[in-house]
Design a binder for these strands. Sequence first.
DNA 1: GCCAACGTTGGC
DNA 2: GCCAACGTTGGC
Length: 135
Amino acid sequence: MAHWLMKSEPFKYSWDQMQADGRTHWDGVRNYQASNNLKAMRLGDECFFYHSNEGLAIVGIVEIVKEYYPDPSDASGRFGMVDVAPRRSVPHPVTLAAIKAEPALADLPLVRQSRLSVSPVPDDAWALLCKMGGL
DNA sequence: GCCAACGTTGGC
DNA sequence: GCCAACGTTGGC
């Protein structure tokens, strides 16, 4: 099973909102690299929910409940989306500062490519981040 | 609010 | 197919 990380600006779509909705379409991705990551997601894969711009922390874990399919909001037809559902909150949100302070996470795509909104998380990094988050 | 990183667009 | 100009993202 693969692991991932997706970003959301909390004033646009927050973790609270995600939990209230129960399930949502992860639409609006307009970047090929991010889109390729969405394509590689499989049913049941887990994914960190990260607050960008404000908060700057991993605050929750979601699960992929529907694999990649066309995004109706994309007129060009080039991009797709997945559906996700909240799985659990992270008891102690893992801040970007904490991630950057951890040498073992220096190669995490989140750190190396700050603009990529959907990125893979290697298994060992996933385990470490869960531990840092109190899970 | 600024700036760096980076993706996209369009002229040649 | 290259590259300059421009727009967007996201951290600080």
